[in-house]
Amino acid sequence: MTILERVYASGGPEVIIPTLELTCDAWDEPILICAGFEDQTVVDENGVTKTFIAAGIDVALPKKGNTGNQTLTFAIDNITGAAQRQIDAALEAEERVTLIYRTYLSSDLNGPAEPPYRMTVLGGTMTGTQVQIEAGYFDLINTAWPRDLYTTTFAPGLKYL
Results as ranks from 00 to 15, higher is better:
3 I>P: 01
4 L>Q: 03
7 V>M: 02
10 S>C: 11
11 G>W: 05
17 I>R: 01
17 I>Q: 02
17 I>P: 00
17 I>V: 14
22 L>E: 04
24 C>K: 04
27 W>V: 05
30 P>G: 00
32 L>M: 10
35 A>I: 06
40 Q>G: 03
42 V>L: 14
45 E>Y: 08
49 T>G: 00
52 F>L: 06
53 I>L: 15
53 I>M: 13
53 I>E: 12
54 A>G: 00
55 A>P: 12
57 I>G: 12
58 D>W: 07
60 A>I: 06
63 K>D: 12
65 G>I: 07
75 A>T: 09
76 I>G: 02
77 D>C: 10
80 T>P: 05
84 Q>L: 13
84 Q>P: 03
86 Q>D: 11
87 I>V: 10
89 A>D: 10
90 A>W: 01
91 L>I: 10
94 E>T: 00
95 E>T: 15
99 L>D: 00
105 L>W: 02
110 N>V: 04
112 P>H: 02
112 P>N: 03
116 P>N: 04
117 Y>T: 13
121 V>K: 00
123 G>S: 11
124 G>Q: 05
125 T>C: 04
127 T>M: 11
127 T>L: 11
128 G>Q: 03
128 G>L: 01
132 Q>K: 14
132 Q>I: 14
132 Q>T: 15
133 I>V: 14
133 I>E: 01
134 E>P: 00
135 A>H: 04
140 L>F: 10
143 T>D: 04
143 T>N: 04
149 L>M: 14
150 Y>W: 11
152 T>N: 10
154 F>V: 15
155 A>G: 01
155 A>N: 11
